[in-house]
Design a protein around this nucleic acid. Structure first.
Length: 445
RNA sequence: GGUCCCGUAGCCAAGUGGCUAAGGCAAUGGACUGCAACUCCGUGAUCACCAGUUCGAAUCUGGUCGGGACCUCCA
């Protein structure tokens, strides 16, 4: 298993801290709005990472937070004349619906900032005690210059950042790069802390949560590449300051998603929400995984349409093989391995083990689709066809693809038999009628 | 101004030093077929350009052109 580690900027062998267990944390959403398809990329990708680890036998502890205290939430609350809590609840629910919608698991641990206020405040207090943070007028800032290695993850130098940074009006900071740990504020929800009323900056929550939930360094920390700087850099700075480690052995960052070649932009109205997608989610999932996760991906109707077609083809043959087995009462028989199928399955695993090369994993799925079609047309034993289904099922599980199918009822089987009988007797009018019914019932396509 | 990424057939996309550059979509020829749908088989690129390193480069180095990101909240 190879993973590209953003921290070291190289491909590395994956070695879990605890044998057979993967502890991973993925930065979750700030819940002030419905998520767009760009937000869905990490949701889909890291879900696939999780499922792959589970498929090859790991026990995965997957944690992803909800940022339910934030300026954007407060702004929204004021705008809609609701409380921050109501806004957060609304969009947490909506988020989980969307996660489910894109076929990602929702059963992970999801700590919220509001539940972690004590931890966050303690964390900040400790940073102050150790001299890594300082207080000015009720605000608390992290002293970046005290971190020798600041900028390692995002490959930046402090000097370059200072030169490049635009002049800030905030002259409270010792250094313009220092980031906010606690913010004094009069607007919106506030919390009581030793350093005054206010609310936390958003860089402390993740480290505080990881510290509490896992209690040690974790295996994988993931998120979009847009978070690498400054968010993840700041997480690392705090963790090194307090715990003397950089949080995770492997840092993984997914590339961004563009629409028609341009970045999604709320201000320019170029945003597509997950809940506004009208395409089959399997097609969307294939689209999302069709480009390697570290590369940027471009959303266009044309490309999406090709994946709709692709999924249709995959689903069609899966259902056809399933139907054939169902009619032969072979769904629960013993599958027989076939060398070509084994090779495809191995290709799939190899692709995934190579830093989650989902494009090549999908190629294996396409190979399987072709082989399934060939076998379906030829006189292949049902036991082998059953293993076709099994390989499909494995790949579907990992990639998060779902075929809606159930075994036939007795009436359906009879209907199917009648259709065949009519065709054999060349009673095509009757046959077409039966076929129409079978299609209507979703048995044929 | 600083930092960084990318440019493979009409479209999407693997491959990152070595057999004839995967795969899919589209297109096109053929096969199968009661009709329709589906499916299967065949057909396409010297890898933006130039110069170098090397026995050998799409893959490494330098340059040119083109596209994009970040340095401020951002998946």
């Amino acid at each position: 298993m190879k993973i590209f580690n953003s921290y070291t900027n190289q491909l590395e062998d994956f070695k879990p801290i605890h044998k057979g267990i993967v502890n991973m944390y993925v930065c979750g959403p700030t819940v002030y709005n419905y998520i767009h398809i760009g937000n869905a990329r990490p949701v889909i990708f890291f879900d696939t990472v999780r499922k792959f680890f589970e498929h090859i036998g790991y026990q995965v502890k997957y944690v992803s937070n909800f940022t339910d205290v934030d300026d954007k939430i407060i702004t929204k609350a004021i705008e809609l004349e609701q409380t921050e809590k109501e806004i957060a609840e609304t969009f947490i629910t909506a988020f989980l619906e969307d996660v489910h919608r894109v076929h990602s698991m929702t059963d992970y641990t999801a700590p919220r900032v509001t539940e972690y206020m004590d931890h966050i405040i303690n964390y900040i207090s400790e940073l102050m005690t150790k001299g890594y943070a300082y207080q000015v007028d009720g605000d608390v800032y992290f002293r970046v210059t005290k971190m020798k290695d600041y900028g390692h993850l995002s490959n930046r130098k402090i000097d370059d950042l200072i030169v490049g940074s635009r002049i800030e009006s905030n002259d409270k900071k010792e250094n313009p790069l220092d980031f906010t740990l606690w913010k004094k504020t009069e607007i919106g929800i506030t919390f009581d802390a030793p350093f005054g009323e206010g609310r936390p900056g958003w860089h402390t929550e993740c480290v505080a949560m990881i510290d509490d939930v896992f209690g040690e360094k974790i295996d994988i920390h993931g998120g979009g590449s847009g978070l690498m700087f400054p968010h993840h850099e700041n997480e690392i700075a705090q963790s090194i300051a307090l715990n003397n480690h950089n949080i995770a052995n492997y840092w993984m960052h997914n590339g961004l998603l563009n629409i028609d070649g341009e970045k999604m932009s709320k201000s320019e109205g170029r945003v597509l929400l997950v809940r506004d997608l009208t395409v089959d989610m399997n097609a969307f999932r294939l689209f999302t995984l069709s480009t390697h996760y570290r590369s940027p991906i471009n959303f266009t109707d044309e490309v999406l349409a090709s994946y709709e077609k692709e999924w249709d083809k995959i689903e069609r043959i899966y259902k056809a093989v399933y139907l054939k087995l169902d009619l032969a009462d072979m769904l629960y028989a013993n599958a027989k391995v076939h060398p070509d199928l084994l090779k495809i399955y191995k290709d799939f695993l190899d692709a995934m083990k190579q830093d989650f090369n989902t494009p090549n994993a999908i190629t294996a799925l396409q190979d399987l689709t072709k082989m399934a079609n060939q076998m379906h047309r030829s006189k292949t034993e049902d036991e082998v066809l059953l293993s076709v289904i099994k390989v499909f099922d494995d790949i579907f599980f990992v990639l998060g693809l779902q075929v809606d199918i159930t075994p036939l009822s007795k009436e359906d089987k009879l209907l199917y038999a009648n259709w065949n009988k009519a065709r054999k007797e060349k009673d095509f009018d009757k046959a077409d009628e039966y076929r129409a019914t079978l299609i209507e019932k979703g048995i044929l396509s």
